[in-house]
């Protein structure tokens, strides 16, 4: 079947098998190998991409056909004008990655989180990232990175709420 999708701002038209998963479409049809595969059960989150600008989705759990007419952002779409996105910069600054395999999914989930919650506290970040497994970092520096990116994106910081 024929689908039309916009990936990282670029329109594509492709024939796909109905059973083709979005992750394999991105990786194999479009060559965007930053989106990874790590499990068979939608558990690990290394395949997370952003749908229509603000929804984190596991691309192993969507058929490519379901993306027809939609916009997808992958990790390759985060760099703008040659500059790292604040999340990418913060992951680098805070040592939020080691082997790098979960990193694209972590970045995309965090990207969608910050679209909805520009100032998430630590529990909110941990909740949002709970569908993304990491075997290397213990999450602590990832949480720190998301906090740094949020602070930079929102600077100057909002007034503290009076109690």
């Amino acid at each position: 079947m024929n689908i039309s999708v916009t990936v990282n701002g670029k329109p594509y038209q492709r024939d796909v098998e109905p059973r083709t998963l979005l992750v394999y479409f991105l990786r194999e049809a479009l060559g965007l190998t930053g989106t990874h595969v790590g499990c068979d059960t939608s558990s690990c989150g290394v395949c997370v991409v952003v749908l229509d600008g603000d929804r984190a989705v596991k691309s192993c759990t969507m058929f490519a056909a379901m993306a027809d007419g939609h916009e997808i952002t992958t990790v390759e779409g985060l760099v703008q004008g040659g500059k790292l996105h604040p999340l990418q910069q913060a992951f680098w600054d805070c040592h939020g990655l080691q082997c790098g395999y979960c990193t694209p999914g972590m970045l995309m989930t965090s990207y969608a989180l910050l679209k909805h919650q520009p100032n998430p506290d630590e529990p909110a970040i941990r909740e949002a990232l709970s569908g993304n497994l990491c075997r290397c970092t213990g999450y602590q520096n990832i949480v720190k990175a998301v906090q740094q990116a949020a602070a930079e994106t929102n600077a100057p910081a909002p007034e503290p709420v009076a109690t």
Binding site: G34, H36, L84, W92, D93, Y101, T103, L107
Partner: peptide, 21 residues
């Protein structure tokens, strides 16, 4: 020192076995 290998991973340009065709 910040890690030298990170920029490629952050951009989705790591090169794992399954990425090779």
């Amino acid at each position: 020192m910040k890690r030298k290998e990170d920029p490629r991973f952050l951009r989705g340009h790591g090169n794992y076995v399954d990425d090779i065709v």
